[in-house]
């Protein structure tokens, strides 16, 4: 039972963390009226998960053998790209924000990019959605007495807790300054995107499109990726106790290159500009 709770909690939190961050982003950018786009993306992601689960269950053949793998890869690499793009925007925002006056302008800009935010919500849910749907459906089919039905409820409780945590992430986004909000969420999304990218590279090895290789190191004794915390970090930021060389290279290369886009050499200049603006506003209140 504990295992069921942990599985659904982990899978759902990978989605709810992303949703919490994008809702918070809209909230801080004066785009609260655009929440619907995120909700729509998440709902479509859920429906797509159902559809994929049903398709895999009912159909057979080589298309079904490889199809979900290809869809999974497209979603993983697509999500990595979208999150990086979003992180790059936030950096653009951060450079321009000097006060509340800017927020109205930013809302207009945000509106033009709603489809990306909606897509991020979609990939966030769809990525692990099909699996979770099948897992819960399996539990429900097995439920013959109160004992096994309570297992289903435990699974649902895991999802509920994950939703609550996502909500907490969203609310906490209001309690930090705007520059700090951008800084923290940029780093989080960058790590998530890097984890996705290296997971995708690992999957390419798994399906044989990249050659298999030996693990570069083994940190199972420090953090076992089959345990709760280890698999949580595995799902969120791509932690592996025994990563292969391509996975490590992919992760580091992604952080380095995407990090340049998202955090970038402009940071030092930006900090000086903020410090100067702060100094000026103190001199002329």
């Amino acid at each position: 039972m504990g295992a069921t709770f942990v599985v659904t909690l982990r899978e759902a939190f990978e989605a709810s963390l992303i949703l919490g961050i994008v809702y918070a982003y809209l909230d801080r950018m004066g785009g609260r009226r655009y929440y619907g786009y995120v909700t729509l993306g998440a709902v479509v992601g859920f429906l797509a998960s159902l559809a994929l689960g049903v398709t895999v269950t009912l159909l057979s053949g080589p298309l079904v053998d490889l199809g979900p793998d290809l869809i999974g890869l497209a979603v993983i690499f697509g999500a990595a790209a979208l999150l990086t793009w979003h992180g790059w925007w936030m950096r653009q925002h951060a450079r321009q924000i000097k006060g509340d006056v800017q927020r109205r302008l930013e809302a207009a800009l945000t509106a033009r990019r709603l489809w990306v935010v909606g897509l991020i919500a979609f990939t966030g849910v769809f990525r692990e959605g099909a699996e979770t749907v099948l897992f819960l459906w399996g539990l429900m089919s097995q439920a013959t007495d109160t004992g096994t039905w309570s297992n289903v409820l435990v699974g649902v409780a895991g999802i509920a807790l994950a939703a609550g945590l996502g909500w907490a992430v969203f609310r906490s986004g209001r309690h930090v300054s705007l520059p700090r909000f951008f800084a923290i969420t940029s780093v989080v999304l960058l790590l998530v995107a890097a984890g996705l990218f290296s997971t995708g590279v690992g999957r390419l090895q798994g399906i044989g499109w990249l050659p298999m290789s030996e693990p570069l190191w083994d940190t199972s004794h420090i953090l076992n990726d089959h345990g709760f915390l280890g698999s949580l970090f595995g799902g969120l930021v791509g932690y592996r106790a025994r990563p292969s060389t391509p996975e490590v290279v992919a992760y580091l290369a992604f952080v380095a290159l995407a990090g340049l886009l998202v955090v970038g050499p402009g940071l030092a200049r930006h900090r000086r500009a903020l410090a100067l603006a702060g100094k000026r506003s103190r001199e002329h209140p």
Binding site: P68, L134, G206, G234
Partner: peptide
């Protein structure tokens, strides 16, 4: 399998 990087339903 994490070792084989495979997840198939």
């Amino acid at each position: 399998s994490h070792d084989l990087r495979i997840e198939k339903v």
